[in-house]
């Protein structure tokens, strides 16, 4: 549990208030505060489960895309749920999608140049691909009760910041969460 109680530091000359406050920035909505008293775990799973519910409604029948896609594979869905619920805390919750072959895809997305996706096979096959800045990756691995370390490392790379990304965030062109720190000073006299 986190809180955003301002931290205060005082010296002889002035009172300095350091305010740490978590913000979400999206290109559409501008800035909006987040209540850090929220239970982070509930937030994580409710969003992902809601996304799962939506794709199930949309893709539970054959030809859901108009090009002959297969309906969601239930075994893939079960495995995807196991993966989501096993994610370590430092890994953000994924977006959920469905591939035309019916496999559930778990997607970590910041922008089209920072994306990593795993397609979950009903037998535990993990087919992944990603664009991580200048790096492009793809391959196959297997679910054995936890995500392989190589895949976790690639997911983390989606959220690594470059100086270019920082500029985008400061100018409000990119969505995501970050911490804003402001220093307020007030003369003692």
């Amino acid at each position: 549990m986190l809180n955003n109680t301002p931290r205060r530091f005082q010296d002889n000359e002035s009172t300095v208030t350091l305010v740490t406050e978590k913000f979400e920035i999206s290109p559409d909505r501008g800035t909006s505060g987040i209540n850090l008293e929220e239970d982070i775990w509930i937030l994580r799973f409710s969003r992902t489960l809601q996304a799962l519910k939506e794709v199930l409604e949309e893709c539970s029948h054959d030809n859901w895309d108009g090009y002959g896609a297969k309906a969601v594979d239930r075994k893939s869905l079960d495995k995807a749920l196991q993966i989501v619920l096993s994610l370590p805390l430092e890994i953000p919750p994924p977006d959920v999608g469905v591939d035309p072959d019916g496999e559930i895809s778990l997607e970590w997305y910041r922008n089209p140049r920072r994306i990593f996706s795993i397609s979950v096979g009903g037998d535990g096959t993990l087919t992944y691909a990603g664009i991580l800045g200048d790096e492009e990756v793809h391959g196959k691995d297997y679910w054995k009760g936890r995500l392989p370390q190589g895949i976790l490392d690639k997911i983390k790379k989606v959220y690594m910041l470059s100086s270019h990304d920082l500029f985008d965030r400061m100018s409000g062109r990119m969505g995501g969460n970050f911490w804003r720190i402001t220093i307020q000073t007030q003369n003692a006299a």
């Binding site: 999206s26 290109p27 559409d28 939506e54 794709v55 949309e58 893709c59 859901w64 895309d65 108009g66 090009y67 002959g68 896609a69 999608g97 469905v98 591939d99 035309p100 072959d101 895809s105 997607e107 997305y109 922008n111 089209p112 994306i115 996706s117 691909a129 969505g175």
Partner: peptide
Amino acid sequence: YLMSRSLFRKRDNTVKYQAFMPPP
């Protein structure tokens, strides 16, 4: 042409890769 809402992201007006996955 996109005939499913699950093929794009409304929040940033981008296309999902599934829209370009080839059929069998």
